[in-house]
Design a binder for these strands. Structure first.
Length: 216
DNA sequence: CGCCAGGGCCTCA
DNA sequence: TGAGGCCATGGC
């Protein structure tokens, strides 16, 4: 399976090109933005999350202190384009509060599993969001599993796992611990999932159509 | 117009 | 532990 996963990556990269999501190195302010983005894009298109981020930026609210100090209603109104804005306002506040006692520097020095466990205790941070933060903000080699990942690999290889952690083990046991690879692979999976391997798939334009086990 | 986005929480068996 | 309801705007 190791070779197949690497081959799939190579095909997706050739077909879609580099996605330049979040860069490997970034400053503290940038890390915060990445984490905010990870929360705002929950079950939401990145375009809508981006609008919410720009609203926060224009209001000088895209950093820890204002997120912590502004009224929750105010945050909610700024992030309206991202949807679920009341819930997400609360989540952003919870994350800003978490950072009061836990700096990015501290998190980066911890073992991954410990940092992950701490993030998972924060309201609004589930496994995918925690892993996105670990991978894209803290540059930890952890594979992000989302709805696209499950759908795509269920179809291509006709495999299925019960829960999130089993999906993650499937990838990391085959691919090792390569932060840059995981960064780009997940972005490519999203590109394939949203434009081609949709709920109603467009198999005719899929770069994996020769190797895919799904029949439609 | 209906479908669905780069999920997670809560409740209830 | 798993299924199901809920949250909500905007692009297509």
């Amino acid at each position: 399976m190791k070779n197949k996963l690497h081959e799939t990556y190579r095909i997706l990269l050739n077909n879609f090109g580099r996605q330049h999501w979040w860069p490997a190195k970034s400053k503290k302010e940038r890390k915060f933005e990445i984490c905010v983005g990870a929360i705002l894009t929950q079950n939401t298109s990145w375009k809508n999350a981006e609008k919410a981020i720009e609203n926060l930026r224009k209001a000088n609210a895209l950093s820890k202190e204002p997120i912590k100090n502004f009224p929750e209603k105010k945050i909610a109104s700024l992030i309206k384009p991202a949807g679920y804005y009341n819930q997400k306002a609360r989540k952003l506040k919870a994350f800003a509060g978490f950072l009061e006692k836990n700096s990015f520097e501290k998190l980066e020095k911890m073992p991954i599993s410990k940092a992950r466990g701490m993030l998972l205790k924060v309201h609004g941070i589930g496994r995918e969001t925690a892993d996105s933060m670990l991978l894209y903000a803290l540059n930890k080699p952890i594979f992000v599993v989302d709805a696209y990942t499950k759908r795509i690999f269920e179809r291509i290889f006709n495999i299925k796992f019960k829960d999130y952690d089993e999906w993650q083990d499937f990838f990391s046991s085959s691919l090792g611990r390569d932060t840059l690879l995981f960064n780009e692979y997940h972005a490519l999976i999203v590109a394939l999932g949203k434009d081609v391997c949709r709920n109603k798939p467009l198999c005719g334009k899929c770069p994996m159509q020769n190797r895919c086990n799904a029949k439609f």
